[in-house]
């Protein structure tokens, strides 16, 4: 495991993603998903929206780093807004 060079922040990062996956799996068992059509005109389920959120957040963070160049954690606020928007309208 040495060669993988774990650090605490990356461990937390992966733990968060794993936790999200577990939560969404439990949600999917408790409240079965029904696909719907949003503004993207494609059918999405809750899991799809999670994926769109995570992928979009990655790009938002990169854009923040490359273009806005402000304090990085603020980007997470943008991501939360984006996440809410995705889950509401996509």
């Amino acid at each position: 495991m040495d060669w993988m060079a774990w650090t605490l922040p990356t461990a937390i990062f992966f733990a968060t993603i794993a936790a999200l996956l577990v939560i969404f799996t439990i949600l999917a068992i408790r409240f079965p998903e029904t696909p719907r059509r949003g503004i993207l005109r494609i059918e999405t389920t809750r899991g799809d929206r999670l994926f769109i959120t995570l992928l979009g957040s990655a790009f938002i963070n990169l854009a923040w780093l490359g273009v806005v160049e402000a304090y990085q954690p603020y980007a997470l606020i943008v991501c939360l807004v984006y996440a809410a928007a995705v889950f509401r309208w996509v």
């Binding site: 060669w3 650090t7 992966f14």
Partner: peptide, 12 residues
């Protein structure tokens, strides 16, 4: 496993 490694390396 390789992708996790890549993430780990990328911040060090």
């Amino acid at each position: 496993i390789p992708l996790m490694t890549v993430v780990n390396y990328s911040v060090q």
